[in-house]
């Protein structure tokens, strides 16, 4: 089935984006990426850069995978930090893509919506193609789209929590408001069934890190998520039946013997 995804004019076949932190080793990361069949990996730069961009060893391993890199600003708490990190990312990975994270709260690692919009405006104006990590708030989505974002990445639940889609109502509303903007569930998924559910709601892609990296067998879990994403997306395109209250017999009841 040819069902490509489009981010800022880039066409992708895989609808699963994968993070690169917290794996037992880079070798297991590479195997998990292969098993996930992903085409896009996200990489954090803020802390790894150190005083003099000393993260080159690890970034080199990421480049060697040959996958498209979506650098992120994980760990940034201010607009200025996020913008500086984006500049560095553009230089290091020669890409206009940036997954913009401005973290506002330590307990939930929740996005700071105010700083996010401000940083998104700056970066969009500078020609970046911004993938904002956001809550599912509709007005926030409006502001980000106004700022120039053409992909939105709402969370399902707090980063690493594995809780699945916390606010199905809110996510449906976001999908309904923006039928034509690619929507990526970013953060909060733990089980493959939750990824399937995101696709069944009509989301275009999911981004995972902890669910794979911290699984007992990251490589097997990467494969499980790849299958779940394909199942959910295929089901969405195939139009699932509407739930109903009464049974609908698949053969006519009338005319059956003894009724």
């Amino acid at each position: 089935m040819n069902d490509p995804l489009n981010f800022y004019g880039v066409t992708l076949q895989s609808r699963l984006l994968v993070g690169t932190s917290q794996y037992p080793s880079p070798a297991i990361l590479a195997d998990a990426l292969a098993a996930s069949k992903t085409e896009v990996v996200t990489v954090s730069l803020r802390r790894e850069a150190g005083g003099s961009r000393a993260g080159e060893g690890f970034w080199g391993l990421i480049r060697e995978t040959g996958l498209r890199v979506l650098p992120n600003t994980a760990g940034c708490r201010t607009v200025k930090e996020a913008v500086t990190t984006a500049h560095m990312a553009r230089e290091l990975f020669a890409t206009k893509w940036i997954k913009l994270e401005v973290i506002g709260d330590d307990d939930l690692l929740a996005p700071d919506p105010f700083g996010l919009v401000e940083a998104a405006r700056i970066l969009c104006d500078e020609g970046f193609e911004v993938f904002p990590y956001m809550t599912e708030d509709l007005l926030l989505a409006d502001r980000l789209v106004e700022a120039g974002c053409r992909v939105l990445m709402p969370w399902a639940a707090p980063i690493g929590s594995g809780r699945g889609l916390n606010n199905v109502f809110g996510l449906r509303a976001l999908r309904a408001r923006y039928p034509d903007i690619p929507l990526v569930i970013d953060a909060g998924l733990g089980a493959p069934s939750q990824a399937s559910q995101a696709f069944e709601l009509g989301f275009d892609a999911v981004l995972l890190n902890t669910a794979i990296a911290k699984a007992g067998d990251p490589v097997a879990m990467a494969r499980a998520f790849a299958l779940a994403c394909e199942a959910g997306r295929t089901a969405y395109k195939a139009l699932t039946i509407e739930p109903r209250d009464m049974a609908e017999p698949s053969t006519p009841v009338l005319g059956r013997a003894f009724t």
Binding site: R47, E48, A49, G50, G51, S52, A54, G55, G57, F58
Partner: peptide
């Protein structure tokens, strides 16, 4: 545990 090769710089964080 930070994926970089900076030997001597302890950060505030």
């Amino acid at each position: 545990m930070v994926e970089n090769e900076e030997r001597a710089r302890v950060t505030a964080q």
